[in-house]
Simulated scan of single mutants.
Amino acid sequence: MRCPFCGSPDTQVKDSRPAEDNTAIRRRRICPDCAGRFTTFERVQLRELMVVKKTGRKVPFDRDKLVRSFEIALRKRPVDRDRIERAVSGIVRRLESSGETEIPSEELGIQVLEALKALDDVGFVRYASVYRDFTHIEDFSQVISEVNARIARDITKDE
């Protein structure tokens, strides 16, 4: 692993441990040349995933971009970072185990919406407003009605 500070090609691993719900290995590293310390994460990648955009353009799947989407939707909301990581890891596992190497962006968006619905209603509405390209206030009311109907179903199911 190349040092991000000085570019030295050799770094030493000082500590390794499981991270993120045991889906990654966290490694603390040190550079023998500049004594810089940094952390890396190793994940198993079953296959190279490509996201097929609505235009037909294909881009490599980016887990960090998926995490940023969750963070933007859940900004200033009381949702633990660990819950976000578990949701993202679940989506990635489902995508990798599907057997498909090309994932339509619409399918990915739907999986994010489903995960956000389980995490936080406000985050769900925020993401839906961008994903579904809301243009009128009525679009918000419709999604909020859907959320309220789901909450009512969940309450009656629990009773």
Rank of each mutant, 00 (worst) to 15 (best):
D21P: 02
T23W: 04
T23R: 10
R26I: 08
R26N: 02
R27L: 02
R28I: 04
R29S: 03
R29I: 01
I30Q: 10
A35R: 09
A35W: 06
G36C: 09
R37C: 00
F41K: 05
R43C: 05
R43P: 05
V44F: 15
Q45A: 13
L46M: 06
R47N: 07
L49I: 06
M50N: 10
T55H: 08
T55M: 06
G56D: 09
D62T: 15
D64A: 12
D64T: 10
D64I: 04
V67Y: 13
V67P: 13
F70N: 10
E71Q: 15
I72Y: 15
A73H: 13
L74N: 07
R75E: 12
K76L: 08
R77K: 08
P78L: 03
P78C: 03
V79H: 04
D80M: 14
R81A: 08
R83D: 03
I84A: 08
E85S: 12
R86E: 12
G90R: 04
G90N: 01
I91Y: 02
I91H: 09
V92N: 09
R93V: 02
R94Q: 11
R94T: 05
L95P: 11
E96W: 05
S98D: 01
G99I: 12
E106K: 04
I110F: 01
L113E: 14
E114D: 13
L119N: 13
D121Y: 07
D121K: 00
V122C: 08
F124H: 15
Y131N: 06
R132D: 06
R132L: 15
D133W: 11
F134T: 07
F134A: 05
T135Y: 11
T135C: 00
H136F: 11
I137F: 11
I137S: 11
V143Y: 09
V143Q: 07
I144Q: 00
E146P: 02
V147Q: 05
